[in-house]
Design a protein around this nucleic acid. Structure first.
Length: 850
RNA sequence: GGGCGAGUGGCGGAAUGGCAGACGCGCCGGCCUUAGGAGCCGGUGCCCCGCAAGGGGCGUGAGGGUUCGAGUCCCUCCUUGCCCACCA
């Protein structure tokens, strides 16, 4: 940094030293209560929520990237008179704590709480105005007891249930929800291990109940990609459920019902075989004795294959006939039944009618096994053309063919009519299917919320009585060197008396998915210590939905969906009347390591902000992160450019404290720009300041922080140019400096406050915080200019710029333009056949021929 | 394979269909300095003509289109990122 020398202009003012300024103001703000929110006052409420961090140990630059602009928004809104609530907390349950515990033989709670203490300290160095009084830590029984309470209410309301099913299983992390399985090769989202299938009894939340409601985004403003992803994830398909009956055979009387879901009931006459998923319950019952060995082998292989590498599998269709037929309900035809793994057990009914003519997968299967392919939909005149591939296209002029009395009808209409017909005698009905599954919340881990049920030998599953909550996690935990849930070996935890019969019973050892914790934490922020209820209904009604939520897009179909589901469940158990958790969500980008990879300790690409703060101060880092690029973009970390931001703050410091000084090295130092008198200079300064104010205000509102900082730099550069001139220190100058500081205050709060206080002191006025000031208003008159420059194009190419009076009309403008020497030269004697004066005379384009 | 984004100087990035490259980094030259890895001033898309002042051409992944005018809108393609991937 600048060294003091004996040059007078450098010693006149104290240099900018963030280290001596920032902690002082942080302490003062805390005393002042800048961060505190009066929750009983809901007028002008502004609930600003940022995704709470996982306490991994250290705050890294990525946390700053997320939190810093959020704090700027909070401060900006406060300056607009908003009653801002900006809470913070910690997502404290989860796997890393257990991994650390196993590795370092330390208690996960101890590890977590140490990290939280460290992160609290680091977060404070940002100078952010978090309301720490509202802090929530999810591994605190005060918090997780309400997860358990919710679970019990959901159980009562039929929103939670237990079922045995084939689940995704990670060897390290146990059960996973479907959205926690990533990639084509099915890896765990957390640890990256291969995910397998297991049959287990697990707890579910009945979120599919809300599928249709979740597709309605009218009360929540998501970024488009998130809305699209959620819509696709929920995956609503309309169609029909059709009942096929099995045909009698030598070994079987027939008459069993096989239900299939189809989106194309219009193609029913083209169904030439059926396929059951390997998991389908009727496979075993229907298989003919002479087919049994082969079918069983196939099913076993298929089920195993989900556990083995399936990625590189050529995706060839495989399957075997089970030696039984079904009857097509529309034409009474016998069609063979196959078992094949291209039909999924978990979607629809786990069985399909195969229409090879109009489905690519069925077509491939039919070709491979020599099954008939019968076209039933065609554009008139093409019905006899041979089929080289399935016809799945959809156009308005296609009709049914080979479909009995439905032949000739438009496809859509025929589909509807066929379903109606079958529905009349119970052989089908209109149906809707979703990709969305119920939320599997059981986890075979220690470090989470214990699921509050007890397994009694006599009574079965018995919910823990509400009065007995919380079911505490035992403090002492012995991992015995493995990741196997230690609760399963903890006799003191495990063995209890049944609440119903008092007989011997065992506690459930599964804990809840930590996404439960993060599904309602912002409601708890509003009454973090309320002892008798999870939320304070009045406060929640007054303050939610959250006005603005900021966080990463990686949670599009996880957290951002779970939380919506959870809010609807909370509503349905009568807690409040909220439909959506947040009004607006903004996804900021992610800061990657310098290598372009995700920042992680193991990669060694983590940038420590403490180091940067020590060198440049928090304000420079805050501003630099905002200046880097659009907030929703993120990108690899690179410190180059940080010096430019620091220089900007240094210049601002100089402008504010030493308007009359000059720098050696500038030949024009102290002189007004050529041709400008004092009045013109002051007009220019005022115009620049108010134009900046107008633009910066819009940028803050639109979260365009990078251009906001750029515009402040421009204003600061302009003032710096006037330093030492007669205009410096005058009224216009003073006003410009004042506006610059106010505009800087949300983003670089410490330096703005410091300079503000020094100016107050210099003026002999009593101190009051810049952060309690009102946001200034633009003086429209100051922004107006007397003249402006109009670019002139000939055939779209820029040829000249003419300076014209601001209020000029189009005709006069045209005359001036045509008289300009360069324009005359460019026209070379030709007369424009058209003169385009673009909106408001911003630009003139002369169109000539030849 | 499907869906949704994104491709602009050496780099990060600006630009309601209207002056492409704001702002910053880097680089070049100068000033100030015992010194400069500090500070200040000026220059900096590429190519060409000119000693110079100046002037001209080309330029936003490629090709086409709409328009007086396209980085921006439309079509085709290429590259790349993310999400979903046998969803009947």
């Amino acid at each position: 940094m600048t060294q003091t020398s004996d040059r007078p202009e450098r010693t006149r003012i104290e240099r900018y030293d963030p280290a001596s300024i920032e902690p002082r103001w942080q302490a003062r703000w805390e005393k002042l209560g800048l961060h505190r929110t009066n929750l009983s006052d809901t007028r002008n409420r502004y609930y600003l929520l940022t995704m709470y961090p996982y306490p991994s140990g250290d705050i890294h630059i990525g946390h700053w990237y997320i939190k810093t602009p959020t704090d700027a928004i909070a401060r900006f809104q406060r300056m607009h008179g908003k009653n801002v609530f900006l809470p913070i907390g910690f997502d404290a349950f989860g796997l890393p704590a257990e991994n650390a515990a196993i590795k370092n033989r330390i208690n996960p709670r101890e590890w977590t709480m140490q990290n939280i203490a460290n992160m609290r300290r680091q977060l404070r160095t940002m100078g952010a105005t978090f309301d720490w009084d509202a802090e929530v830590v999810t591994c605190d029984p005060e918090y997780y007891r309400w997860n358990q309470w919710f679970f019990l209410q959901f159980l009562k309301a039929g929103l939670a249930y237990r079922a045995r099913s084939s689940v995704d299983w990670c060897p390290n992390d146990g059960t996973l929800a479907r959205e926690q399985v990533e990639g084509a090769d099915r890896r765990c989202w957390r640890c990256g291990a291969k995910v397998e299938k297991r049959d287990l009894d697990q707890w579910y939340l009945r979120v599919t109940k809300y599928a249709d409601e979740l597709l309605d985004f009218s009360e929540i403003e998501f970024p488009d990609p998130v809305r699209t992803m959620q819509t696709n994830w929920i995956g609503r398909s309309e169609g029909g459920e059709i009942v096929f009956a099995t045909a009698p055979s030598d070994h079987h009387p027939g008459g069993e019902e096989i239900r299939v879901f189809t989106t194309r009931p219009d193609t029913l006459f083209g169904a030439t075989f059926m396929v059951l998923a390997p998991e389908h319950p009727l496979v075993a019952a229907l298989t003919a004795p002479d087919r049994r060995a082969e079918v069983e082998a196939y099913v076993a292989r298929a089920l195993a294959e989900t556990e083995i590498e399936r990625l590189s599998a050529e995706r060839d269709k495989t399957g075997v006939p089970i030696g039984a037929d079904a009857i097509n309900p529309v034409n009474g035809e016998r069609i063979p039944i196959f078992v094949a793994d291209y039909v999924l057990g978990g979607y629809g009914t786990g069985a399909i009618m195969a229409v090879p003519a109009h489905d690519e997968r069925d077509f491939a299967f039919a070709e491979k096994y020599g099954l008939p392919i019968r076209r039933v939909v065609a554009v008139a005149g093409t019905e006899d053309e041979p089929m080289a591939e399935a016809y799945v296209a959809h156009s308005d002029d296609e009709v049914l063919v080979n479909s009995g009395e439905y032949s000739g009808l438009p496809a859509d209409e025929a589909g509807r009519r066929i379903v109606e017909w079958l529905a009349r005698d119970g052989r089908g009905r209109a149906a809707v299917t979703y990709r969305l599954r119920d939320w599997l919340i059981s986890r075979q881990r220690y470090w989470g919320t214990p699921i509050p049920v007890i397994h009694c030998e006599r009574c079965g599953i018995v919910p823990v009585p509400e009065a007995d909550l919380p079911v505490l996690l035992p403090d002492t935990v012995d991992y015995a060197g493995s990741g196997v849930n230690p609760l399963t070996r903890d006799a003191a935890f495990l063995n209890v008396a049944c609440p119903r019969c008092d007989g011997p019973a065992q506690r459930e050892t599964d804990t809840m998915d930590t996404f439960i914790d993060s599904s309602w934490y912002w409601y708890r922020y509003l009454s973090p210590h309320k002892a008798d209820e999870p939320i304070d209904a009045d406060t929640a009604e007054g303050w939610t939905p959250v006005e603005q939520y900021t966080g990463g897009a990686e949670h599009a179909v996880m957290h951002l969906l779970y939380a919506r589901e959870f809010t609807k469940m909370m509503r349905d158990i009568g807690l409040f009347q909220q439909n959506e958790p947040w009004k607006k969500v903004f996804n900021q980008g992610q800061i990657l390591g310098a290598d372009g990879e995700r920042m992680s300790k193991s990669r060694g690409n983590v940038q420590d902000p403490d180091e940067l703060v020590k060198r440049y101060g928090a304000d420079t880092i805050r501003l630099f992160l905002m200046f880097m690029g659009p907030w929703d973009q993120g990108g690899p970390w690179s410190p180059s450019g940080i010096g430019g931001v620091h220089r900007f703050l240094n210049r601002t410091w100089t402008i504010a404290l030493d308007p009359q000084g000059t720098e050696a090295g500038d030949p024009d130092a102290g002189r007004l720009p050529a041709g400008e008198d004092l009045a013109a200079a002051e007009r220019a300064i005022r115009a620049a300041a108010h134009r900046t104010l107008r633009d910066v205000t819009e940028d803050y509102e639109g979260f365009r922080f990078n251009t906001m900082v750029a515009k402040l730099m421009e204003l600061s550069n302009l003032l710096f140019r006037y330093r030492g001139t007669p205009a410096a220190g005058g009224t216009a100058w003073d006003e410009a400096v004042r506006l610059l500081l106010l505009m800087l205050a949300p983003s670089a709060p410490h330096i703005a406050e410091e300079l503000w206080s020094r100016r107050l002191a210099a003026a002999g006025r009593e101190w009051s915080s810049i952060h309690a000031e009102r946001w200034p208003t633009v003086d429209a008159a100051a922004v107006v200019e007397a003249t402006r420059e109009v670019p002139v194009q000939v055939n779209g190419k820029l040829r000249d710029k003419v300076v014209v009076p601001a209020g000029i009309d189009d005709a006069a403008l045209e005359r001036l333009v045509l008289a300009a020497p360069k324009v005359v030269a460019a026209l070379a004697g030709r007369t424009p056949e058209r003169v385009v004066v673009a909106g408001g005379g911003r630009l003139v384009n002369l169109v000539v021929r030849g």
